[in-house]
Design a protein around this nucleic acid. Structure first.
Lengths: 320, 320
DNA sequence: ATGAAAGCGCTAACAC
DNA sequence: GTGTTAGCGCTTTCAT
């Protein structure tokens, strides 16, 4: 039976005015694709991940995919047991943060045809994509900057590292910069703490009690640095005069701390977008999943003392 | 045909070792339920929302639901056009932030059998749940506190409000506290700015240029307050001696600013959990969707000057 | 070109 | 109880 154009239009208009939307489950079942990407994060508390995920969502959207965010609050049990990650609920998955799941799980997913991309880790397999920033260079740049400002006793505040930690992390760059300056590596100056502002505060409190006291610290990330700045202030120490601080990540808060935070800028936007692009490449049937290593750069603000040096007039007032 | 227990166990073991997981789309289609809840947020940049969503995810998980987060970056177009919100892709939806979608869309969803809960807004219909914090009382407590500390010219930094804004917002509490103290309301002291740290900085820069200058500001949220503290510091003004600041939300950063931030604590965890509980209630067939109004409380730290007053010995060093 | 039909993977209902 | 079957809503293929 032929349907007149007029009728067709009436039907379409009625459908859209009634708010018809095709059933997602039925469509996914039939097409064997959900047009959904899952993003697994250790937490949403760190704005670093929020920024990455925001960019990823935007990128995915442009390609007709939606992004589901799963925040693995540590206590909740691990990846394996997570019913959130049900069979074929998503076409692809981006995993950020080491502890969220083991390589074997990811390989299993990849074998089942799910596109997998890991963030901030080398790819465990040719079928798994990887997008990282160059942490080693970041650690090097941060530490070298402190060395250049005359510091010799430079601490590093870090996270508990996985046993199977690959090389190329911040601490490796830290050691390289020290070695380059002929400063012996001192294990007492590397302290491990919880990944939170409180953790950063505790770590700097401990470091400041050391004798001889270090004169600067390179922090694992900006959150820890914010906590550290607070701890120093509370102890009556002036940053950067009494103690210099460098962060990592480059998140927004660093421009609003007292003093403003010198940090290593990690390209969050690019990281999120690229993760999605690599993932879509895998879905499009790329043979080899891509691997990317993104560059970082040093952003000099007030917490390291470089500004003060460059402009001696503002010694007493590290504003900006 | 009977199957022996031994065989059954072998099959089950094989299935789980092969990583079998039931297909989510097929299951959803058949059961007419996806066991998924969508959380619509204006942005993930504000840790306030991250904290709410984290709690919601935990609560939902305990009931076998997963939570999908959709961050509506404003430029991306609105709720209506969002293909992210496909038909029946989720059993329920929690909407936070006024501008994300109009009541008509929500009613349409509710009519289609989706459970709907709005955050921080009154329910537009008996079938839609609502969870709010008492913004009016928050505004009142913040402002009254400043009044009690002797301030008379108290500014309020706020967001652009929707045209159809319901009453009961922060600004109403602000006005109530002023009226109670017989302080005339001065429109020049209420400034609207972007919801970001930069926005807070700009607003305080403008306020400080007024003549006569206000002596205190009640900020829409902690992010704006952090920006404001920075702007004041940059201008060489000492908080709280030269200018007092009170925030809103109670997010983690407020304990690490210089000085630490007096704020109104909004129960993020409870907000997130309750939103999920109300939503699950609707899915369970509750006739009337619940409405909740959660209490807030004043958290006194250093940015308002109350600590200094209570302990005159620390006038010059507003630490904590 | 248009319309009919099969089937995606699962589960609930039903017959044995 | 245990095994069979129908069908969720869509899309794709095949027959007309």
């Amino acid at each position: 039976m032929r349907i007149s154009d007029e009728t067709r239009e009436r039907v379409l208009a009625a459908a859209s005015s009634l708010g018809y939307m095709p059933n997602h489950a039925a469509r996914s079942l039939r097409r064997r694709s959900t047009k959904t990407i899952t993003f697994v994060l250790p937490t949403l508390e760190n704005p670093y991940f929020s920024e990455i995920v925001g960019a990823a969502q935007e990128e995915a959207r442009q390609h007709g995919y939606s992004v589901t965010i799963v925040a693995m609050r540590s206590e909740l049990g691990d990846f394996r047991t997570s019913s959130l990650l049900q069979g074929a609920a998503y076409d692809g998955i981006v995993v950020a943060g080491h502890d969220n799941c083991a390589a074997t799980e990811l390989l299993q997913l990849a074998d089942r045809g799910v596109a997998v991309v890991v963030l901030q880790e080398p790819s465990p397999s040719a079928s798994i994509g990887s997008v990282r920033v160059d942490l080693e260079t970041g650690g090097y740049l941060a530490t070298r900057h402190l060395v250049e400002l005359g510091h010799r006793r430079i601490a590093h505040v870090t996270q508990p590292l996985r046993k199977d930690e690959f090389g190329g992390g911040r601490v490796d760059g830290y050691r390289r910069a020290l070695a380059e300056a002929d400063i012996p590596f001192d294990e007492a100056l590397v302290v491990t703490t919880a990944n939170s502002m409180e953790g950063g505060a505790e770590a700097l409190n401990a470091l400041v009690d050391l004798d001889p006291r270090p004169t600067a610290a390179f922090m694992y990330n900006d959150r820890l640095a914010v906590g550290g700045l607070h701890a120093l202030r509370k102890r009556g120490l002036v940053v950067p005069d009494d103690f210099a601080v460098v962060g990592f990540d480059g998140v927004a808060i660093g421009r609003f701390t007292a003093p403003t935070l010198t940090t290593i800028d990690s390209p969050r936007d690019e990281l999120g977008r690229l993760a999605i692009k690599v993932l879509l490449g895998i879905l499009d049937g790329d043979q080899e999943a891509q691997e990317h290593l993104l560059p970082v750069k040093l952003v000099v603000r007030a917490s390291c003392g470089a500004e003060r040096r460059a402009n001696p007039s503002c010694v007493q007032q590290p504003t900006s």
